[in-house]
Amino acid sequence: MALAGDPAIGAALAGLGGCAACHTADGGPPWAGGHAVETPRGTFYGSNLTPDPEHGLGAWGFDDFRRAMREGRAPDGHAYWPAFPYTSFTNLTDEDLGHLWAFLQTLEPVARPDQPHEGIPPRWQLQVFRWRAFHEGPEPLDRGAYLGTAVGHCRECHSPRTWIGRIRTRHELEGGHAPFTVAPAIDPEALAGWSADDLDTLFTLGMSPDGDFPGGGMSRIVDEGTAKLSDADRAALIAWLKGG
């Protein structure tokens, strides 16, 4: 497929999607993999996403990337563990996948081998096949929901997961188990005390109404993601959060 991705747009999408946090080891080279994502079902390490031909995505084409993001499948056909939040990314449009892919091409290649996952339960591949069987492909979403669920997987941190690592939709946004730290609930009820302006201040300046600055993974989502969005996109994200 022909591609005309814009790396700058891809960078903002990557920031909102928090890719770098999972795909960079503590103190390691950026995007070269190794952050431990701890789940009740095992510890999974984000892979090397730099264009290194041996250890990264250097040998991949766009179609490989699209299959990984949309179907959670590797080029050799095996299913990824959903600690990689492709259950969110599956709704990304081809256009935005093109921007992300263009951005990934601009990274410095790093020859860092992927770290093997730990504690993978038996037969988990079956569960992933089940997800795929029931999953109906990209859903049409309004802009705010798209930014919050397809690109920014806010729910990955702000809601609990089921034992196979899928999101428990009933508890969506009610506060959950963050891969980094415990994230507070951000459903409309929990955010009742926050005006749209308060949320805009958080998403641009990083400051919450009490004058403090949320950390624990959120800080980076703000700096690399929400603060880089266009004003219209930020407003759409806020409207979605407020449930309107």
Partner: peptide, 21 residues
């Protein structure tokens, strides 16, 4: 104003513990 916000946030990111929830 943006610079002041960055200076608050930058220091908190590195030198203040995160709030408990």
């Amino acid at each position: 104003f943006g610079k002041v916000g960055k200076s608050c946030k930058g220091c908190h990111d590195n030198f203040k513990v995160e709030d408990e929830h």
